[in-house]
Design a protein around this nucleic acid. Structure first.
Lengths: 257, 257
DNA sequence: CTTCTATTGCGTCATTATGACACAATGCTA
DNA sequence: TAGCATTGTGTCATAATGACGCAATAGAAG
């Protein structure tokens, strides 16, 4: 994999190359087999899984850093990526645990090492097409894989809290923004789109009312093909009308006042 | 006012007492004479007005730091305060201007001074009752006062951009959350509440439909008094039903899906 | 003290959006 | 070829919304 040396170098030089005090963590959502998934990494230095994260280079925009982290873990560039909250409790990290864990990994750091300092982390969430992702561990991690949302109990530090907040935000966004382009393949069926919504919201929706509403937004194009092979009546395939989809992304969906 | 000494001390010791790299700025909204106002400060070191802001003490929660800044500028404790965005462009500040300006103020700092470093700032917005605010400049400022939203063209650094984003957020929140408790006096009339909404949204609303909708939320209590002296028919006074108001704050207003 | 006027309280009506549900069409399976 | 689960399409009652009418009222004008 990525040579250990790089990792050590980063650990040693971090203070010189990263913006101090600030980190970012990404909640990367994917949709597969009717389940909402999140990409997690397993650092060698802890027993818990964690959100993919990173630090900000001294001359790098915060948003660019998030894009970089995402690209590194998934290989994907052009995706939906949005910051949603900053987590800034003074006691959110217990880096001394991290220190002893690093020791297990053969890396010793002093008590004033930059990694042990307090970090304020910016939460980003991303929507990606599951099949396009090449899950890639970072240099400090031994694994990187998808987890079902419902199978995640405990994560590293406050990452579970960050994940929950991301999910709340996603559910809210579902009311304003068209969601789906970044989570589904190019062509998809109405039941698939509905299942996506149901999975995110964690509740069932009426099939016919869902279709009426979602088509009412005018962001879908029904293709002339159907998805055959499904043991029953073949549903039509749809794709997003990107002109109207983007317009809806900018203007929002219903208005309100 | 606050002694210059404190300011110099902070300038000198900042690196030791503040979390590096991180700052926060508050967009404090108030409503007065049918206008939406924002509290701004005028630092001695620049010609531009700026959002009240500050840094985070090393052992202080980020949210607590925002509350503290707000308390310091307004004297108010218990208010609506929420982070809305992080501004993290690498080039968002040109602190060299700041340096030469500090010089004018009689304070010299070296080229590697902590104030000249790059800061990532967390934007908070607050809703406060205009009449309760005691606008208080901080130690680096010569003035602190309310500005009409529409009279603000240019601000210090990227603060105008931050203000605009706060306003966007407030307009969005208007669709989910009950707004008003923190911006209006205890008792208010329906036209006053409507004017608040119209001012925030920057559009007119139908008087009768507005009343139907807002009362439909069930967060208002109509009192038995009317506001006399207004040259025409006296409107009823209302106040918020705090039990239902808080419930609406937690659950949101419409739902959507 | 009466009249005038702008504003408020309360209502109607047509249109649209929503929730609940019925039924026929279709593609695989037996 | 019949059975069956699923999809396409539609109906109906109800709720929410937008546009607007009219009488009540408190101060101002005379």
């Amino acid at each position: 994999m990525i040579p250990q040396k790089t990792f050590s170098e980063v650990i040693a030089d971090g203070e010189g190359i990263f913006q101090p005090s600030v980190s970012l963590d990404c909640v990367i959502f994917g949709f597969h087999e009717n389940e909402l998934k999140v990409l997690l990494i397993k650092a060698r230095t802890t027993d818990h899984w964690a959100l993919p994260g990173g630090f900000v280079f001294k001359e790098e925009d915060l948003d660019d850093a998030a894009t970089r982290v995402l690209k590194e873990r998934t290989g994907i560039n052009d995706i939906f990526l949005q910051q949603f909250h900053v987590f800034g409790s003074a006691n959110r990290s217990d880096w001394n645990i991290h220190r002893s864990n690093l020791k297990k990994d053969g890396i010793e750091i002093g008590p004033n090492h930059w990694l042990l300092k307090r970090f304020i982390t910016v939460g980003y969430y991303a929507l990606v097409e599951f099949a396009h992702v090449i899950a890639t561990p970072d240099s400090s991690s031994e694994d990187c894989k998808w987890w079902d949302i419902n199978e995640i109990d405990e994560l590293f530090m406050d990452h579970k809290q960050i994940l929950d907040k991301a999910l709340d935000t996603l559910r809210l966004q579902l009311n304003h923004l068209p969601i789906g382009y970044n989570l589904l393949p190019q062509k998809f069926t109405m039941p698939e789109l509905q299942k996506l919504y149901e999975t995110i919201l964690n509740k069932t929706l009426d099939r016919r009312n869902f279709q009426r509403r979602i088509t009412g937004f005018g962001i879908l194009k029904r293709l002339k093909e159907t998805r055959k092979g499904g043991a029953h009546r073949a549903p039509f395939l749809y794709s997003f009308d990107m002109r109207k989809y983007r317009k809806a992304l900018k203007q929002g969906l219903h208005g309100g006042w």
